[in-house]
Simulated assay, not measured.
Amino acid sequence: MAKSGDFVEYLNQERLSMDSDPPFCQTYKALFDKISENPCNKVVTVEECELPLVDLSRLDLDESEMEECKREIAMASQEWGFFQVINHGISRDILEKLREEQVKVFRQPFDKKSTEEKFATGCYRWGTPSATCLQQLSWSEAFHIPMTEISDSGAFSSLSSAMEQFAITVAGLAQKLAGILAEKLGQKSTFFKENCLPSTCYLRMNRYPPCPFYSGVHGLMPHTDSDFFTILHQDEVGGLQLVKDGKWISVKPNPEALVINIGDLFQAWSNDVYKSVEHRVVTNPTVERFSTAYFFCPSYDTVIQNSEPSVYRKFSFGEFRQQVQEDVQKLGHKVGLSRFLLSHK
C-alpha cells in the first residue's frame, strides 16, 4: 500500500491514465486530503474461506439426493446467508460472452459511458455522491439495468444480446431457488412467481478499478442487499468479503460457481430464519475486478409479511426502499431491517 503522501503523485498519474476510469481522486480530493493529514496505514488481514458449495444437478436425481440438496441450500441460507451453486444451468458460453461484452463497455471513455443515451445518468453510476468520509466511498463503477431495458440499449447491441441470454436463464434459476427456500419454510412458491417478475428485477454490471494508494477505500462499502436474494457471477480476482461469526472473511473465487446471497426481504419474509449478511468488496492495488449481479426483487407494492408471531411489522418493498434512501441521505449509511422490527421505537 502506498503512503498517504503519495496522493498528489497518484492524482497526477490518474490525469494521464486511461480516460475510461472515473475521476475518483479529483472528485473526492477533499476526502483524501483528510487522510493525508491524518494517515492511517493499518492493514487488516482477513482469513480466506470457501462458501458452502451446492451441486444443483442433484435436484434431478432420486428423491433422497434431491431432498439433501434442498436441505443444504436452506441450511447455508440460515447459517451463512451465502452459498455457491454449480451445475446451475447457465452455460459457460453465456457467462463468458457476458463478461467479454461487459469489459468492452467499461473500456469506453468515461465521457461516453456517462452520457450515452441509454447508458446515462441513473443507469451508469460510480463512486458515492453522498460520501462524507472515505469509509463511505465505493471505488467502483456500475451499470444498473432494469430487465425491461435490456433489449433496448442503444449503441451496445452486442452487450444487450449477452445480457438478455443471461437474464432469461438466471431468472429461471432464481425462481427455482426461491421455491426451494419457500418449501423449506412450509410456504408456497407461488408468492415469488406472482410478485418477482422480469419487470421487477434488474442486473448490475460492476467494475472495480485498481486502487493502489489506500487500503481503507472499499470497492463497495459494507452493506446488506435489499432484495430477496442476489445471484452473482464474479471473476477470479477476488475481493468479496462477508461477516461470519462476528468477523470478516474473504470469499475464495470459484470459476465454476455462482454466488447466492440472501437479502433483507427474505430475512423478513422468513421471520429471521434466513439471514441477510453484511458484505463488502475490498479494492485491489493493481488488478481490476468485474462482476455481474442479478437482483431478485418484487414490485414496490408487494407486501412483506409472515406468520405470527412475527418479528417484523408488515411493510411494502416500496416503503422499505424509501426508508433506506432516507437513511442514506441523512445518516450516510443504510439502517435496514431494524427500522421495521415490531419492537422498534
Rank of each mutant, 00 (worst) to 15 (best):
G318Q: 10
C297A: 12
T286Y: 04
D327R: 08
K3G: 09
T224I: 09
H144K: 10
E319N: 09
W248F: 13
Q102P: 12
N38F: 12
M205I: 01
K193N: 14
H223M: 12
E116W: 00
V43P: 00
G5I: 14
E48Q: 15
A268F: 06
C133W: 10
L220D: 09
S160P: 05
C40K: 02
P253V: 14
I231N: 04
Q165E: 14
K70G: 12
F290M: 00
T230N: 02
G186N: 08
A76R: 10
R92V: 03
M221S: 05
T292F: 05
D21Q: 05
L98Y: 02
E164C: 05
V54N: 04
P109V: 07
V243P: 10
Q26R: 12
D21G: 05
Q78I: 14
Y312W: 13
V43C: 04
L51R: 10
V328F: 06
D93F: 14
Q78F: 08
A178M: 11
D235W: 10
K184W: 08
P23M: 09
T190H: 07
H144C: 15
A131N: 03
F83W: 11
L59V: 15
E47L: 14
A174R: 02
E47D: 13
D62P: 09
Q135F: 05
L203R: 01
S316K: 08
F295W: 12
L331Y: 13
F156E: 00
G239L: 15
S299V: 02
S138K: 10
S4F: 01
K176F: 07
G5C: 06
L11D: 08
E100R: 14
I180S: 09
F266V: 01
Q108I: 01
S291F: 02
V43T: 04
E100P: 03
L232N: 04
E308A: 15
L95H: 11
T224K: 04
A162M: 08
L16A: 05
S153K: 01
E319V: 02
M221V: 13
A257Y: 04
D235G: 08
R321V: 13
Y294L: 00
V277S: 12
Q175M: 11
